[in-house]
Nucleic acid binder design. Structure first.
Lengths: 224, 224
DNA sequence: TGAGCTATTTTTGTATTCATAATTCATTTT
DNA sequence: AAAATGAATTATGAATACAAAAATAGCTCA
């Protein structure tokens, strides 16, 4: 099967750089040498630089005039800010989802939830995370607001690397699962206000976990 | 006074195109011919194209592969979506502002408020809008969350053209002023939750005004 | 030997050029 | 005459070339 390559070079490049940052092959604070990446991707500098512009706007890299691009460092402050904003957005997604969600979607989300619970009980963290993400995505989709979804997604990119490297402490994990139980109840009852509130709180808990995991650059630039 | 030209060509170009869209010299849906703008700005295509990438990410223009850039049209749907998201963000700004705002800032905001009220009583809509914007900005600043501010600002760009062209009906104007009175009270009482709720509602009212003003492209693409 | 300056190299920012896809216009055919 | 096809033109996407700024290295001189 031939993949239809609708994507432009700069879009492709942006995606790859994003992945590299999230996977840790490009470390926070380090310079991104255009030439090297061009060779690596087999493209010229023009589309690569366009990609960097997009990523800069996303907040993945910072562009210093005449001094090139650097991978944005996540300070504790920034992470806190981002989680707060994402909390507000997820809260809205919950409210809107309760208004627009279909029976079918609720059923699907419930199914995902039970699947997730199974992984939780077995202590399988990776699959748990996977399902968790899919549930949140499903709620976001049910909100029927693409602007919201894109805004959220853009912020989410920035902190993916933290999420990936997060390892759960049991206590927080239990709390997260409890949040999810309550979320399902709200969805069934179409209680948007409460679902919104839970989602906001839910993100606040996640922040604590992320902060504890120690992947954050403290505000004073540590080397690298 | 010499303006410090820290800005790059692409940043300058992006700003100018933004302004052109907001002022109406580039109309929704029309193609943006690269060559023409290059001549107009006196720059080459490279920085201009970089500018378009940024604007595309902001949601000001849409980039169709091999078919160039078009000014994004504001459908009713999009406007509604955007106002919802901005409402959530302003709501958060209110909550955070009540936590972080200084006495001095509250006093400044109050001063702006009274200034605004004076214009309201005199029916001076332009200066009223100006002060109104500054009050919201001040609250946003008091929230001490740059991520929030930038996210909000990016969405705000998209709908500036609607705001500019909005003419107030007395009824809505009265409502807006009432909202503002309540906002000041909340700020003084540091009642973040209520301030947040008011701001969310406040934006909902603005949507009604914008929708009524008829500057929106309906979802079915009208010519142009 | 070390500090400061200059020259060289490297890298970034911008312009130009080349290739390819889309659009337009003319011609042909039904 | 209208529709369809194909050639010419134009615009976009990407690569290369050039200019300017920053980083580096080497050199001089105290």
């Amino acid at each position: 099967m031939i993949k239809i390559q609708q994507n432009t070079l700069y879009g492709e490049a942006a995606a790859r750089i994003r992945d590299m940052i999230n996977e840790g092959s490009l470390l926070p604070g380090v310079r991104i040498p255009e030439k090297q990446l061009c060779e690596q991707f087999g493209i010229s500098r023009t589309p690569l630089r366009e990609a960097l512009k997009v990523l800069a706007f996303e907040g993945m890299v910072e562009l210093l005039p005449n001094r090139g691009a650097r991978v944005m460092r996540l300070t504790r402050q920034m992470l806190e800010e981002t989680y707060n904003v994402m909390g507000a957005l997820e809260g809205l997604s919950g409210e809107l989802a309760c208004r627009h969600v279909t029976e079918q979607e609720v059923a699907d989300i419930q199914a995902l939830h039970y699947q997730m619970m199974a992984h939780y009980k077995r202590g399988e963290i990776r699959p748990y995370f996977e399902l968790n993400q899919r549930i949140h995505d499903a709620i976001m989709l049910a909100a029927r607001n693409d602007t919201l979804r894109e805004t959220y997604s853009s912020l989410n990119y920035r902190i993916q690397r933290v999420r990936y490297s997060t390892h759960m402490i049991d206590e927080y994990w239990d709390q997260a699962v409890a949040d999810h139980e309550a979320m399902i109840e709200c969805l069934l009852a179409r209680d948007g206000e409460r679902l919104g509130a839970i989602l906001r709180e839910h993100l606040r808990h996640k922040l604590v976990v992320a902060a504890a995991s120690g992947v954050i650059d403290e505000d004073q630039p540590t080397a690298v």
